[in-house]
Design a protein around this nucleic acid. Structure first.
Lengths: 245, 245
DNA sequence: TTAAAAATGATTGAAATTGATTATTTAATA
DNA sequence: TATTAAATAATCAATTTCAATCATTTTTAA
């Protein structure tokens, strides 16, 4: 049976029962406990269930704030984004002043954050919502909200962000390559990214492998300016690239 | 049985009985008293129940001065709030520059807004979200987010709001009466309300009848300073009160 | 087709949970 | 206040669960 099918079954079992033991799942699906454990780790990271000693619990994960758009629903790289997000979350240290950009990959990051002893700034309403749900100290810069992405953009946002100095920042991007750097389709959004990046000490760009073949109209940073966290880099590795497996 | 599952059962037993002895729990769940004791320590630390010599008591986790969380507030006087919100929404005119406060009643308002030809400012993430979904032009002041209400509060928010001049504004309140004016439990939130009100020309306070019997610690405005929209005012009508049927 | 990568199941030592036993504390009552 | 019975805490051994590792099979990509 393929992995994804098995995950579905585990989740549907959980729908009926609230909590399951590893042995229960293993015997009802005829798969070894080792495999079920691995599945559980994965599903837990995706926030689909809660892993505890002895088994799993139903996740009352209600932080789906924004309806997914069509393109997001059909996003084939969800898994990769979760992994990238999970890794990036481990980079946040106590007392960090953290900037989190808008985008689906940074949303995945937000879901994995556990560092309570830090302050978070984001221009994404969705990210803000996820962080608040976790009780984290969150600040929003002011400004206009761009309808399609639910992100703050515009001069007021840029002004507000430029008053901050972040110790660490995580950025999403539409395209990334060595010649054009990081690119995005929208001027206002690019401006916010650029300013935030300029005010950030440790810069990380989160991008799944599909972004390396895309070039969008506006650049907001040079390729070598940030550490790139990705699932797979198709060309010869450069030293500022981290591949998450 | 999984530990967490057992905790649920203990708490649901406690729902029915107010107080329990260790031996009771132990025998009804078929686990040793030692284990139940350990569970009790855990649940007590989590504030889910109160541990006493001889057993446990139901935790009464309610302080008068604390804000209810969103979910707690959500279904109180729902019908009335919807009516109030629907009426208030008709007051917004083309080219208005609108302030919308945080709170469940103002959320009801947001849901009924149809005026596309206006600009909206709100300190509530939830209201912002509703407005964006409708494609309305929405602006957020910057600032820290208060976890329990998902509203922006603090000096940065106050600064940002004080730079605006609204043509019309809608405010929620915890308490309202002729002597103490409009009151709310939290200083920072009160400050935001007060400043926003000072910068607003046509002021409306939305409150269902239950608020007239409440006095919260901090005042943010005088009773006669705003037009009050309510479902029912229990005393002699004053001319700044509108009853929505 | 072949080589590389990913997934699986089994094994093992470490970690967590549990129930039983014993020592200590608490509360009731003489 | 002192006494006593009950409740609790502390400790230990047994059991269960877990994470890490490795060999084998399956899938993917070159």
């Amino acid at each position: 049976m393929i992995r994804e099918k098995r995950w579905e079954k585990i989740l549907s079992l959980l729908e009926k029962k609230d909590s399951l033991q590893v042995s229960e799942i293993s015997s009802s699906l005829n798969v070894s406990e080792a495999t079920i454990r691995r599945d559980i780790i994965e599903l837990d990271q995706q926030g689909k269930l809660v892993k505890v000693h002895g088994g799993v619990l139903k996740s009352n994960n209600s932080y789906v704030v924004r309806d997914l758009t069509m393109s997001e629903k059909h996003d084939l790289n969800l898994q990769e984004k979760q992994k990238i997000g999970a890794y990036a979350a481990t980079l946040i240290e106590p007392n960090d002043f953290v900037y989190i950009d808008s985008g689906t990959t940074t949303e995945a990051l937000a879901m994995h954050i556990t560092q309570k002893d830090a302050t978070y700034v984001t221009n994404s309403l969705t990210v803000a919502h996820i962080l608040i749900q976790k009780g984290l100290h969150t600040i929003l810069p002011g400004g206009e909200i761009k309808v399609s992405t639910e992100a703050l953009v515009g001069s007021e946002t840029v002004d507000a962000i430029s008053r901050y100095n972040f110790t660490i920042g995580f950025f999403g991007t539409n395209g990334a390559n060595e010649d054009n750097g990081f690119t995005t389709p929208e001027v206002n959004e690019a401006r916010v990214k650029q300013i935030a990046m300029e005010h950030t000490k440790r810069k990380y760009v989160l991008c799944d492998h599909s972004k390396f073949s895309v070039i969008s109209p506006i650049s907001f940073g040079k390729f070598e300016d940030a550490t790139i966290i990705t699932d797979h880099y198709p060309k010869k590795k450069k030293k500022n690239i981290v591949e998450v497996k």
